[in-house]
Design a protein around this nucleic acid. Structure first.
Lengths: 127, 127
DNA sequence: GTTTGCTGCTTGATAAATTTAGCGCGCCAT
DNA sequence: ATGGCGCGCTAAATTTATCAAGCAGCAAAC
């Protein structure tokens, strides 16, 4: 007991979700294995649902998403992978004022600058 | 001979793409390693570009997408992860931040680029 | 010339994902 | 009973991604 403090790992959240998806459709582990075209073994599914796998490969998740007719991105998110568009977080930090101008470019300008940069770097020594 | 229809594996397609992205920005393997905050080793990148890795983790792809300012979903697709049809958005956006190459400039380069930017903008009458 | 410092690359080692084989349980029909 | 049959689960084995270290090659500097 007293395992409460054990914060639910994303793996467990995913497991619970997968479990509900499967049972909700009245499928057995082996049925899912079949339905996925043997792409996912029943044993692995079990571990998955019990939160014992930290990072299932997207292939697996994709197959399961198909079988369950669930949203692939949602599964990915629950698996702890990057959220579909929450990726705009990034590490855009660094605050040189001049760079601001450089950050706001049209596609054309950006390409032109990259080309030019490649040019001057090729001409001189590497920084 | 015997080389003929060596169907390009998704890994190789991804590798070629990553390679073009990197060289297109004039970055070395180690520079990318740095740019990713050590998230991806240069050794791994090499294997990746040479199509030796079948299923790179999305984390890696995400990091590279940030470094190259490429579309994460597109990379995923090229890595063979999601069905081509599932990639709906894919390109529209452009409000992106600058690429690593453009973010990490020497003072010299930055000045040169800013000058050049001013030049092309003046030329085209851009705001 | 040799040293330095890059480049891309290959090679083990390690940890983790995934599979194969098998266990124990309950259920239904002999 | 009792022999199957399907269930969920698990231990061991295999495969794979990933990294740290080190290689040879090349360019520029000393």
């Amino acid at each position: 007991m007293a395992e409460q403090s054990q914060q639910r790992t994303p793996a467990q959240a995913l497991g619970a979700y997968l479990h509900s998806l499967r049972t909700g459709r009245g499928l057995s582990l082996r049925e899912v294995e079949e339905a996925s075209g043997k792409a996912v073994s029943n044993a692995y599914l079990s571990q998955l649902e019990n939160g014992k796998i930290a990072k299932p490969s997207p292939h697996v998740l994709h197959h399961l998403a198909l079988v369950y007719d669930a949203d692939y991105q949602k599964l990915m998110a629950r698996a702890g992978y990057i959220a579909p568009d929450a990726e705009r977080s990034a590490e855009a930090r660094h605050g040189r004022a001049a760079t601001y101008a450089i950050e706001h470019l049209t596609a054309e300008e950006e390409q032109a600058l990259l080309d030019y940069l490649a040019f001057i770097r090729a001409r001189k020594g590497r920084p």
